[in-house]
């Protein structure tokens, strides 16, 4: 298969993408926002990236990436042979190297099988550095589809008991499925609430989940604004959440990046320091 960019991905340098699935169990914790932002950040760092929306029937990733109006074909069209894979891919004109493979809106999860996802990803692998899959909430078919092709899994949780409980369930399921240990993003942290003891601290989350932390993202009103505009917050320079997502992208690439100190608050900074110091 030819490279999608028609540019630097062709030639004798053969890429083989890492497939990373972003999941959570619970809905509404920020999977889609995380997928869109990490994908954009990885592309900004010079990688060829495709984001796949595996949430067939409840597609959102196209909205968050601001690409809805350009959808012609989707994942189900590809699987059912109504179009070629590259016809369904949407190139993000703002960010070089960033593509979206949208979900179908008028179908449901049963239109896709885990082996379909593996086939689609295998076809994409040679042309990309990273394939990010936005998993639907839940532990049923849609989740199975999303994790089937994954080389690694990132779990998004909020610092709140029900999302931690669901994340724990997901980790157990991934272990049974022979996937490697997932990594964790704690999203939407409100430092002042942690300080007041009204929110779980990140330490409490890690205490239960016992997996590696790959990023902490503060609650940031800018995320809502940029989501509504379909403009990932990583593309803005002055947003704390944007910086957090950029850091996650760099950690995915294997760089050592210190954890953000969320300025407003001493308590959180205190334990972040502790985490940095005593993390290993």
């Amino acid at each position: 298969m030819q490279g999608f960019t028609g540019g630097d991905s062709q030639g004798f340098c053969h890429m083989s993408a890492r497939v990373i699935t972003i999941t959570s169990g619970k809905g509404g914790v920020g999977k889609t926002t995380a997928t869109a932002n990490i994908a954009a950040a990885l592309a900004q760092l010079g990688n060829q990236v495709v984001a796949i929306d595996a949430d067939v029937g409840l597609r959102n990733l196209d909205l968050v990436m601001g690409l809805e109006n350009r959808i012609v074909y989707d994942l189900v069209d590809v699987i059912e042979g109504r179009c070629r894979l590259r016809q369904a891919m949407i190139r993000d004109k703002r960010t070089d190297g960033l593509y979206l493979l949208p979900a179908a809106q008028t179908r449901d999860k049963t239109a896709v099988s885990p082996s379909d996802m593996v086939l689609v990803c295998d076809e994409l692998r040679p042309s990309f550095d990273y394939i990010l899959i936005d998993s639907p909430a839940g532990i049923e078919r849609g989740f199975r589809n999303a994790i089937a092709p994954a080389d690694e899994v990132i779990i998004v949780s909020n610092a709140e008991v029900s999302s931690v409980r669901d994340a724990d369930r997901i980790i157990g399921l991934l272990q049974a499925d022979e996937k490697g240990a997932p990594r964790l993003i704690v999203n939407r942290i409100k430092p002042d609430m942690v300080a007041a003891g009204d929110m779980l601290a990140i330490g409490d989350v890690l205490d239960v989940l016992m997996i590696e932390l790959i990023g902490t993202v503060p609650e940031d009103d800018q995320v809502i604004v940029s989501t509504n505009r379909g403009f990932p917050v990583v593309l803005e320079n002055h947003s704390l959440a944007g910086e957090a997502f950029r850091n996650i992208a760099r950690r995915i690439r294997g760089e050592e990046v210190p954890f953000l100190s969320l300025q407003q608050n001493r308590g959180l900074r205190g334990w972040l320091k502790k985490l940095r110091g005593g993390g290993k």
Partner: peptide
């Protein structure tokens, strides 16, 4: 190893778990 949310162990006899038993 840890028992995570949604996992269960049952036995007629005694049970020893080396690891945490998480909520759920």
């Amino acid at each position: 190893g840890a028992l995570r949310s949604g996992q269960a162990v049952s036995s007629d006899g005694h049970v020893t778990i080396i690891g945490d038993v998480n909520p759920g």
